[in-house]
Amino acid sequence: MRTLWGEIAYQLGGVEGYRMLEEEDRTGVAPGSDVLKELFDRFSPALVLIDEWVAFLRNLYGEEGLPAGTFDQNLTFAQALTEAAKRSPRALVVASLPASDAEVGGGGGREALLRLQNVFGRLESVWQPATQDETYEIVRRRLFQPLSAEGYRVRDAVVREYVRYYREHRGEFPSEVLEPRYEERMRLAYPIHPELFDRLYEDWATLEGFQRTRGVLRLLASVVYTLWVRGDTSP
């Protein structure tokens, strides 16, 4: 396989699927939506997941004669792929696109992102990875093992200690920390305080170049490691 469409055809239908696009793969010419729909219909249900598409395309920008096809042919394929998926009842295309200029990578990357946004903008259903509260669970699963029965007991004791402290010093903290909802947020975020999440996701996430998911995980992993090495057992 030389091209993205040749690789997709092979992954969906093996040798038989690849034969349907062999000529287009060999010549680097993007297939039309009709043949892609036929591919989907024959080997459906089909789920096509494409990550780092912009990074792939920016390497083709301004280049000719590459086995993967030209920049324009690959964007023609993107349009044909989305149209074929729309017409095929049991096919779905999911692609991730960068959310910031820091992840785009130069003029070729910006052009690729703009063109892909235009292609998907006609048919897209935008999906946001997680709400802010849901990130608590995501980060905890990446950094910590699931809580045991003893872990839940410790968690509730820690939350009660914070609630007690906030009530005794109510004049020093925002009123929201005394609400039942905030107590529930502390349980959801445990063993990380929700205020730290708020600062990371509301303040740090606005900084140029800060990657919300990877940046938060790397920072918190470093903090957790330091506390673990120190043997810190404070609430």
Rank of each mutant, 00 (worst) to 15 (best):
M1H: 12
S100P: 00
F43R: 06
G109C: 10
G231Q: 09
Y190S: 10
R142Q: 15
G13F: 07
G69D: 05
Y152W: 09
P45T: 13
E52S: 03
Q128S: 11
T76R: 15
A68M: 13
R181G: 03
Q79Y: 05
Y18I: 05
V216Q: 12
K37C: 06
L207F: 12
S222H: 06
R26D: 11
F120W: 13
P89T: 12
L21K: 03
G107L: 13
F197P: 01
P180L: 11
E134F: 00
V15M: 09
R167Q: 14
F210K: 03
V94Y: 12
P89I: 13
P146W: 10
L217D: 14
P146N: 12
E195G: 08
W204N: 08
G14H: 06
R181Q: 10
N74D: 05
R19Q: 15
S88G: 01
R170I: 02
M186H: 05
E168S: 10
V139S: 06
D198R: 12
T3D: 02
D101T: 05
M1S: 15
E103D: 14
V15S: 14
R185V: 07
Y165S: 10
T226P: 00
L178D: 12
G121S: 07
Q117K: 14
L178F: 06
E7C: 03
T76C: 01
H193D: 14
W204Y: 11
I138K: 04
Y18R: 10
G6R: 04
L220V: 06
D72V: 10
T233Y: 02
D232G: 00
P194T: 10
M1L: 11
V229R: 14
D41Q: 03
L114Y: 06
R19I: 00
Y136G: 07
R181V: 13
T213P: 00
V223W: 14
R110V: 03
L196Q: 08
Q145Y: 08
R141A: 15
